[in-house]
Design a protein around this nucleic acid. Sequence first.
DNA 1: CTGGACGGTGGAGTACTGTCCAGGGTCAAG
DNA 2: CTTGACCCTGGACAGTACTCCACCGTCCAG
Lengths: 117, 117
Amino acid sequence: MRIGELAERTGLSRDTLRFYERTGLLVSRRLPNGYRDFPPEAEPWLRYVRTAQALGFSLAEIARTGAELSAAPDAAERLSELFREKIALIDARTAELAALRADLAGRVGTGCPLAPA
Amino acid sequence: MRIGELAERTGLSRDTLRFYERTGLLVSRRLPNGYRDFPPEAEPWLRYVRTAQALGFSLAEIARTGAELSAAPDAAERLSELFREKIALIDARTAELAALRADLAGRVGTGCPLAPA
DNA sequence: CTGGACGGTGGAGTACTGTCCAGGGTCAAG
DNA sequence: CTTGACCCTGGACAGTACTCCACCGTCCAG
């Protein structure tokens, strides 16, 4: 698939996709005319990238696990493992948010809401 | 309180505090010798800044609400309101994370974990 | 065979959030 | 009066994640 189609499917700009390729986050073959040719997996991969990014990972970190992944013989199992790690991270993040929420809720309506918790 | 003390109390660097002041996130008086003199409220305020930052607000946005706040006659009530807004945001964020978690959990162990959800 | 959509490259620029440094002033203790 | 801890300023630099641009090639429809 060429860059325009991938851009439309993922909602990312062409420039962003080229940028991702430069940083190793995305790979492509080249067509005889020099155009990039992305595999169909690029689309779900980019969805995953968004997820990881939303969890606070930098593009460099995501690229690193991506590279590690394509080198692994048991890629599917490794990826499942990554997903489990991300789930644990989400649970931790959720707990942090709950604590923050409790802290803020406790301050609502106090005379001096900026006082130390 | 001088910058060194505030830095130590908040765990931020002096440079970061000066940077925050430049961007309007923090205000200070000056001592006769030119040293910054921060009010005691600076410390809880910076804790609040951290919270807002963790929720994804940019420093500029935080500075804006801060300025608005100190201009408001009913500062305490306005701040309580801000807290309630942040709580709503936390709830939304938590829901997003739950959806993300469900998505990932559904993909764990599938033969092709990168396939569209 | 020309126009327009699409693709390529290299490089500059942007916004944000700091971090570091040189050069210099302030102040209290010894 | 010197030393050391602390403070000041202005400005350069860094990392992240894009975004935009000029200039050029490719390809297909009419």
